[in-house]
Design a binder for these strands. Structure first.
Lengths: 330, 330
DNA sequence: TTCGGCAGTCGAAGCGCTTCGACGGCGGGA
DNA sequence: TCCCGCCGTCGAAGCGCTTCGACTGCCGAA
């Protein structure tokens, strides 16, 4: 293994000079710089990560905690992870993969051993047990998703309120006068805050602003059929539906069709769902911008590592992709 | 930060004794052991990863290179990755996530800086440019998938030959007398060796042993329709089909139906494909055992890190899951 | 009784890097 | 002309851990 003293000898300088050339933390004459860099190249020098971490108390590694539970959409997670790794690399950092099931211990371990400098947690829950730990860990962190109480933490996610509003506005623009939002299962709403609630708020506000009648229904995926028929019974003039409930999306479409509504002829549909699902079903949709979330999470984390102040919450603007399920009304 | 000398002082021993208690590399009296472990616990000591790596030249981290190209099935990759992390943890190791596009440089970087002790590469190609690097890196590695020339490397994957055979046998058991394998696109076969070829070999061998007529066709996903009609025209007595071509699976089913064959009444179908696809389509199938592949890859790597000899190639036995697409013949 | 050997412990020497303080030389202001 | 201060470089002191050799008792064999 070639070490910094080898480079120093080869370049005719001291090890500390080599270090300063490489880190740029002190001014070095152009001539010395060049000589050192030449030696680095010809010797193929690579600083030892452990030694560097020990001396500088910076490992240049961040932890990424990925979720395991079944409700989540794997491609979205993967996309975020890849984006995170790619972005981390542009900041000269690497990514350590942790699974949800390591839980609190995992966080304490990687932070406590100084294996990582900072942490990204995906898929935080409303009352996540990891929150107090993250707050007291003494290392920067970024959460993907919003817990009930995010004080002292940095969070990022899609702006679900804007997403709800965008859906309502799109339908209003097309001429719909009565629209519905079919949301998460009742249990999710009962738990209080969260992305489900936000979508609803945005949807209702935008509809009100446009003078469009708006109804909101929760929906258990297994009750898709009854939700659909109930909705159509109570609101026979309904012409537009927003579905924010990934597993229920396909069943709902089936149920609407079974109830005699052609899509999109009789009923326009927008999904708030991963792009591949919407793509496959040909639905106008708002996707989770996974790449952007992953990349931004890392960017925020890097800023925090640099000691900068960052906004406590980052809401990414929704992007509505129009597909065949929301044509203009005749 | 509490360090080993703090523990030593608290326990009334020397730092080296603490180290030996923790590593178990020298015998320590039960009494001292207990005292040290108590101190460790009450002080909440965690060894500094960087210091440990520097002193022991072992980082206890392995790299996992995940593929990016579009052909791959994301949930399978994710499942392997999770299994790898979980298994690595049982061996007291962590996993660093690398993306394919870091390529050769990435491997040289993480190995050269001693950031990782060993490497797992997923989705190796037949003539992967990373192979020579892996061979010369001086660190253990395990490949998931088989390149054309695997000398000096450790590989693991599903046993596609056995999978092909299992499909043929299952159909033979059910009473089929003429069966077909619809495989990868022609280009894949032309490239020579690889999993496509192996499946074919196993399929043909088993069919021959059972006295069943067997035909093999490559298939481009966009030519699914013509492949299906051509197959049925040339072999009107065909009653069983094995599809080993993930993207073409659904189009092929559609094409068979369009050609007037009911599934499974007129035509039994087996897929060699990810479980979720087969599940969704209700097809009897052989899945890629992602969990097992990921876990075993890590186990092999750990054995190599321990200096043990491991088999150059590990072929995981296929498991055929019977669903509704292959009922017994009347 | 003597002594070899082993179990249990310690001290010290690194592992390879960063960083702090110091120092020589040189340019510019007084 | 003198001195201050800055630029560029060096030496040395760690960062926290592992590990090697050495030392001390103590037991059992001779």
């Amino acid at each position: 293994m070639v070490k910094i003293s080898d480079v120093a000898r080869h370049a005719g300088v001291s090890p500390s000079t080599v270090s300063y050339v490489l880190s740029g933390k002190r001014s070095i004459s152009e001539q010395t710089r060049r000589r050192v860099l030449d030696s680095v190249r010809t010797l193929g020098y690579r600083p030892h990560a452990g030694a560097r971490a020990l001396a500088s108390s910076r490992s240049n590694v961040i932890a990424l905690v990925v979720p395991l539970r079944s409700g989540i959409h794997v491609p979205v997670v993967m996309q975020m992870a890849i984006a995170a790794v790619t972005t981390a690399r542009t900041h000269d950092h690497d990514v350590l993969l942790l699974t949800q099931d390591e839980g609190v211990d995992g966080l304490e371990r990687v932070a406590g051993t100084a294996l990582v400098d900072a942490i990204i947690v995906m898929d935080v829950e409303l009352h996540d047990v990891r929150l107090p730990v993250l707050r007291s860990l003494g290392r920067p962190s970024v959460l993907i998703g919003f817990p009930a109480d995010a004080t002292g933490l940095t969070c990022i996610d899609l702006d679900f309120e804007a997403a709800g509003a965008a859906c309502a506005e799109h339908l209003a623009d097309l001429g719909h006068r009565e629209i519905a939002l079919v949301g998460a299962p009742p249990a999710v709403y009962e738990r209080g805050t969260g992305f489900a609630e936000r979508t609803k708020t945005g949807f209702q506000r935008a509809a009100a602003e446009r003078g469009v009648r708006a109804v909101v229904r929760p929906c258990d995926p297994q009750d898709a059929r009854s939700t659909a028929t109930g909705l159509l019974r109570d609101h026979p003039d309904l012409t537009g539906v927003v579905v924010h409930n990934e597993p229920a999306t396909e069943p709902l479409l089936t149920a609407f069709r079974a109830a005699g509504r052609r899509i999109p002829d009789d009923l326009s549909v927008i999904a708030i769902a991963p792009d591949d699902l919407a793509e496959r079903l040909g639905l106008t949709s708002i996707a989770i911008p996974a790449d952007e979330v992953g990349a931004q999470a890392v960017t925020l984390l890097m800023a925090k590592l640099d000691g900068q102040e960052v906004p406590a919450s980052t809401l990414l603007p929704p992007r509505l992709v129009v597909r065949s399920s929301t044509p203009p009304l005749p």
